[in-house]
Amino acid sequence: MTAILRTESGRLLRGTLTLTGLLVVLSAFFLVVFPSIQEEAALFEEVYPEYILALLGVEELHTIEGFLGGYIFPFVWVLLAGIYFAYVSAGMISRDVRTRRMDLTLSSAVSRESVVLQKIGALWVPLVALSLALLGTLLLGVSLLGESVNPIALAMVHLLGVPYLLVCAGIGLVFSVVLDRVETAQAAALGLVFVLWLVDGLAQLNPDFEWVGTVTPSRYYDPTAILVHEEYALLDAGLLLAVFLVLVGLATAYFVRRDL
């Protein structure tokens, strides 16, 4: 019973290819400008006190590791890819219900639980494609710049980013089963992920409000720590994974009980 998984995977292919191409180009642009901002970054780090840089999540910006962890990943991975996963998941159930495609699917001997799980399972397509393409681009780009980066750390920054992206997908999935309109569900999911990202960033700027950031998923995924210090926060990743499972559980429990 993998018909839905297969079809859904195929359906995600087109969007995944577009997004992958976009993010590869964007990452390449970032790498191109790295040599020119390298000197400024060093100056920046001398001028500003240590704690401000730490709060901004910017460390060792003049090194390639710091640049990847402080610039490329927060933007390309945490924000853009996060929004994509939330957006795509928010359309998964709501669109099928809206177009009555769900009626035909559920007229077969397939449970609603299975439908949700197969649909969310299809996210392996963008997860694998984005990770491999970005990993390849960064490895190639870094070597072209005459720099070097620990490939294990680079692989880990992708791997530990997966639970973060899954939480974004989980947020989208919950909106997808609760809200009837596709556009509303997608806008809500996209908006929430963006706001969470913003809250995390803003909270880090003010020590008094830093605790607010603890409810944001991006707090539990720190590319700079992974790349610069090779600290792999497995516990945080596990926490994100648990949150993802809870969100899928909630969405499924709601979906099997609702009228279509």
Partner: peptide
């Protein structure tokens, strides 16, 4: 439902797929 067929009034198919691909999907299902 393994022994039920259903023809709804509003037919929700995957619009981008060809008729053959749609039938493949239901065949697997």
């Amino acid at each position: 439902k393994a022994n039920v067929g259903y023809l709804p009034d509003t037919l929700g198919f995957e619009e981008r797929l060809t008729g053959r691909q749609v039938l493949e999907y239901f065949a697997r299902l």
